[in-house]
Write a protein that binds this DNA or RNA. Structure first.
Lengths: 253, 253
DNA sequence: TCTCATTTGTCCGTATGTATA
DNA sequence: ATATACATACGGACAAATGAG
């Protein structure tokens, strides 16, 4: 039986945390390579002379840190040799994907069901021929002093009947779809690129066609990875920037 | 003593999960308003007729979901009445901030210590007059078949002496700074905007000056929020997009 | 397909330490 | 200083999932 390291003073870490440290060290040292199994709970009890309760508390820490995964009946398996999460960007709602989407309102100019043509389909990375409810409009700042971007939203046709009154609603469209359909957006993929402002957006925004513009494509996916909704935003390049802040997210260990 | 709801079949949730559900319902219903204290562990044991172990497992779920916080000696406090829907963008290293920064190499054209002028200072959001090591170059794909972007990196002058051999190094500069100085990047702020390609970058990349380009400004901050390093990348707008994927981060409950 | 040993999951009881009010 | 409340740690028992035979 090994003894867990412990400082002499009264400020030692709890037993289960020292055990977790020891296991992290063993994993980092390659004693338990990624993909291999960790010793069983009972074996760890015997090896370190602690109760199963303590072993389970330690293993829970490793699970929380993404180092191991556990399956009832099968054991614990090492899935990473270093705490995988280094930096995270967390948002509380998809509206914050582009932070200023709060405190803005969408003025809808048009909403109709369309069949995707070649060009439009390619632009949103989806095969042509499918039917979508296409909503176009302009997003304004809350005080309506400034236009934020030109918006085109494609909502999957199966939600179209839920959105017949969309032009009189406010709030994010994806939230409306979620609330009325009961389906949840499980994942969102955002693509930011620079391109020349297209004529339609330039007309709506009163800018020059061809000027540098920020194009933001957001795809809202359900649990199976199929798109529920796709939004294309065109922002005047000289007025808007997309900012994210990532914080280091690991334990001092 | 209340009895936790349980379906008749054999497919009931574990006791501690049902208890967590019950507590979530009570919080959502305003029985335990945000800011108020939850009953103590012992009281919850008595009230629901379960062991303290079970109560603690349930409360741990609520902590993980961000609904309550607990302090030894003080009790449990409600900090939110609805599971804060979080979407997270997780990266394992700052190099993945722009995903293709992996598998690319930076060809350094120039490195010299400079005092920031007005224009440059404004561009990186920092007062003029400060001294920085300015490194310029072009980032190539791994097979050197294509130029990815034009790069200007400003490293705080206190790190300059650690980077005298920077042109012969590869790997991310921020990693070099971290390794040699011992200071850690605690936070990174990235700003993406569209602008006309400036002449210097256009020359280096062989593109047209004034064409739509993606400008990415990354500021690497230390624990006190002071910038350790600032990087400005110019990408040809027609060739590159910045993609992030956010996953829903909550439990099925 | 079925059995069976293994392994983790759940749940109980008890005791003591430590931070808080 | 005392009582309270959460944290840590020991013990035992059975259930459920897994995987091998």
């Amino acid at each position: 039986m090994q003894s867990l390291p412990s400082a002499p003073g009264p400020d030692t870490l709890p037993l289960y945390q020292r055990l977790a440290q020891a296991l992290r060290s063993e994993i980092a040292a390659g004693i338990h390579p990624v993909g291999s199994g960790l010793p069983t709970e009972i074996e760890l009890c015997a090896r370190h002379g602690v109760s199963r309760h303590t072993v389970r508390a330690a293993l829970r820490l490793l699970v929380d840190q993404g180092l191991i995964e556990r399956r009832q009946g099968a054991g614990s398996r090492v899935i990473a040799d270093t705490p995988p999460v280094a930096y995270v960007h967390t948002i509380r709602s998809l509206s914050e994907l582009f932070s200023y989407t709060r405190d803005t309102t969408l003025e809808i100019a048009d909403a109709e069901t369309v069949t995707l043509g070649e060009a439009e389909a390619a632009a949103i990375h989806w095969p042509p021929g499918t039917r979508w409810l296409r909503i176009t409009g302009v997003r304004w700042t809350a005080d309506r002093s400034e236009m934020v971007c030109h918006v085109t939203v494609f909502v999957h046709a199966r939600f179209a009947e839920l959105l017949t009154d969309v032009s009189r609603q406010d709030g994010p469209i994806h939230a409306l779809v979620e609330a009325r359909s009961g389906e949840r957006v499980e994942e969102a993929v955002q693509e930011v690129s620079a391109a020349a402002m297209p004529p339609a957006a330039a007309r709506a925004l009163g800018t020059r066609t061809g000027a540098p513009a920020l194009r933001i494509l957001r795809r809202y996916l359900d649990a199976s990875g199929a798109p529920m909704m796709v939004a294309v935003n065109w922002h005047p390049g000289d007025r808007f920037a997309y900012t994210i802040r990532l914080r280091r997210d690991d334990e001092p260990a």
